[in-house]
């Protein structure tokens, strides 16, 4: 069996079969249930329209996915180092790239489970409106590179900073900075700085694409630039992670 598959299976097993993984899924379910309940209530009171509610759920799922990715990524190398299991992995006939992509395989499994878990909530808040199918597809298309990019970033920082705590703190700050479009008001986002930030920020690209497709019903052709930003983010973080693991000191 390919080393990437072997490491990925181990990572996925550790995540999904462990108490930590189950606790994460339970927490996600509670957050999504509360959020959905609040949003559906707002829809019933006509405070928000159906499309806006779906858009908010998509942004929240992406943010939670990115949060899971940075937590797992930060532990991926530094955590193994702290537990003494990194050295045997580095001494196995496995390349740094295989270690990184194997670790990422575990994160992909976590993201897939999270995505599947979020679908009933997306359906619950958006079933009575339009664009539900597009919402589900775009959450996968744009959410996946953004989330996995944060996973790669976590792995890179975990390899460079040698401590889970430092890697997690740095990854979380980066996530908060990039996810700030979710918190910015419309006027700030229309300013020059807001526009520049939106133009290069993968998180903005994903959120703006959700907005464009679900609220404004625009086609895929309008999202190519945003998709490119998300993919560039994914590739750059992957390269950063591989270089960091390759240059890592024991």
């Amino acid at each position: 069996m390919n080393p990437i598959t072997l490491i990925a299976r181990k990572e996925a097993g550790e995540l999904l079969m462990s108490g930590r993984g189950l606790a994460w899924l339970l927490a996600l379910s509670v957050i999504m249930s509360v959020l959905s309940l609040l949003l559906v209530s707002n829809t019933e009171l006509s405070l928000l329209d159906n499309a806006q509610v779906v858009y908010m759920v998509m942004g929240t799922v992406t943010a939670l996915g990115a949060l899971l990715a940075v937590v797992l990524g930060s532990d991926a190398v530094a955590g193994e180092r702290e537990r003494g299991s990194l050295m045997p992995l580095l001494l196995a006939p496995v390349t740094p790239s295989q270690i990184v992509f194997g670790k990422m395989g575990g994160q992909v499994a976590g993201w897939v489970v999270m995505y599947l878990l979020s679908l009933p909530y997306v359906w619950a808040v958006g079933s009575s409106g339009q664009n539900l199918t597009q919402a589900v597809a775009y959450l996968a298309l744009f959410g996946t590179p953004v989330v996995l990019g944060f996973g790669f970033l976590g792995i890179a920082l975990s390899a460079r900073l040698r401590s889970v705590r430092s890697a997690l703190l740095t990854s979380l700050i980066t996530l908060m900075l990039l996810a700030s479009p979710l918190l910015l008001g419309p006027s700030l986002r229309q300013s020059a700085i807001g526009k520049l930030f939106d133009a290069v920020n993968p998180f903005s690209a994903a959120v703006n694409s959700f907005d464009s497709v679900v609220i404004d019903s625009q086609p895929l052709a309008m999202q190519i630039n945003r998709l490119a930003i998300s993919l560039v983010w994914l590739v750059l973080t992957a390269v950063f992670a591989i270089r960091s693991v390759r240059k890592m000191e024991i």
């Binding site: 550790e14 079969m17 462990s18 537990r83 003494g84 990194l86 045997p88 196995a92 006939p93």
Partner: peptide
């Protein structure tokens, strides 16, 4: 290595089987 770390949630047999496949 001096600090022999493992994946503690696995059984020893499963762990060694995993390492064997890695090699």
């Amino acid at each position: 290595a001096e600090q022999a770390g493992f994946y503690d949630w696995m059984s020893a047999g499963d762990y060694l089987l995993w390492v064997a496949r890695l090699y």
